[in-house]
């Protein structure tokens, strides 16, 4: 088990509040369209984030640039603050993903906080598909994502978490809160997907996720002409290891997909299929597999 913070033995002082000197990692990228291709323009990346070179993985879709967001810290820790920002210029196209799941360690009541800001200009495309958060016992995380979309733009957001106790003792995570806010170019609210839940609430017959282990949510947003049709989304989880529900989103924002999976493999299969369907709908060609 990896643990960078050990709880004190019983009877000793509790973990002190980490209110000063807390690192604030930033991962900020601007994508610009140059001719038939997309390039990274302005960028700012600070610890714990790391950025390798971007990849043009899709020969049939030369405008689509792929970036792997990496972290050198081994997960999320108590009171950590991370901020990401993506500016996608007109007609630029980007896929931002991670190489692996992100472990959220025991936060001792001081949640890690992640914020993401996204601005899409006309006809831009962004697929933001990080691998799931893996919530260890005591993990606490507060996530907020805000996106603003110009006409013709497409945004695919994938968000997932899994429950995991390395000791196999089914100890719950502490809490998880999430807020996703999407507005149009005029600032009108299109969508607000917001929840907070404790790990204890996911135990037993009154769990809102039943006995499933991986919880995923996908939002396919933007120009209907560049989004999949319902028939494309009909068979996302055919094998019994996952269940998925597809719905139109409010204000004609696109499609929402809730998915529950028995394990990470089944969840990844659904996520990869949705990414492929979304790229095909937006560009007319399916993407190459993303190696992880």
């Amino acid at each position: 088990m990896t643990s960078h913070w050990q709880p004190p033995p019983p009877g000793e002082a509790s973990v002190p509040a980490a209110t000063t000197g807390v690192p604030a990692g930033r991962f900020e990228l601007a994508f610009l369209r140059h001719g038939g291709r997309t390039a990274v323009g302005r960028q700012f990346v600070s610890y714990p984030f790391h950025l390798t070179r971007p990849f043009a993985l899709d020969s049939a879709i030369p405008s689509l640039l792929t970036v792997y967001q990496q972290s050198s810290s081994g997960g999320l820790y108590r009171a950590e603050r991370l901020a990401c920002r993506y500016d996608i210029g007109a007609r630029a196209a980007a896929h931002v993903t991670t190489q692996a799941a992100t472990v959220v360690h025991d936060c001792h009541g001081q949640p890690a906080r992640q914020t993401v800001e996204i601005a899409l200009e006309e006809d831009a495309f962004l697929a933001l598909t990080p691998d799931p958060l893996v919530l260890f016992p005591g993990a606490s995380c507060v996530n907020r994502l805000e996106a603003k979309m110009a006409p013709g733009a497409v945004l695919l957001l994938a968000d997932a978490f899994a429950l995991h106790d390395p000791l196999g003792a089914a100890r719950p995570f502490d809490r998880l809160a999430s807020e996703v806010v999407v507005r149009d170019a005029a600032g009108r609210l299109l969508l607000r997907d917001c929840f907070r839940v404790t790990g204890e609430a996911l135990v037993g017959p009154s769990s809102p996720v039943g006995g499933w282990r991986v919880v995923s949510s996908f939002l396919l947003l933007g120009d209907p002409a560049r989004l999949p049709v319902r028939e494309d989304l009909a068979a996302l989880a055919p094998d019994g290891h996952a269940v998925a529900g597809v719905s139109t989103l409010p204000n004609g924002a696109g499609w929402g997909v809730r998915c529950l999976a028995a394990d990470a493999v089944a969840a990844r299969r659904v996520a990869e299929l949705l990414f492929s369907i979304s790229v095909r709908a937006a560009f007319g060609s399916a993407p190459a597999p993303r190696r992880k």
Partner: peptide, 18 residues
């Protein structure tokens, strides 16, 4: 106060019900 909701299993059921 935000409107919050966390009922993924019931939401999937409603979507399948539709």
């Amino acid at each position: 106060e935000p409107i919050r909701s966390f009922i993924p299993l019931a939401e999937i059921a409603v979507a399948l019900h539709g």
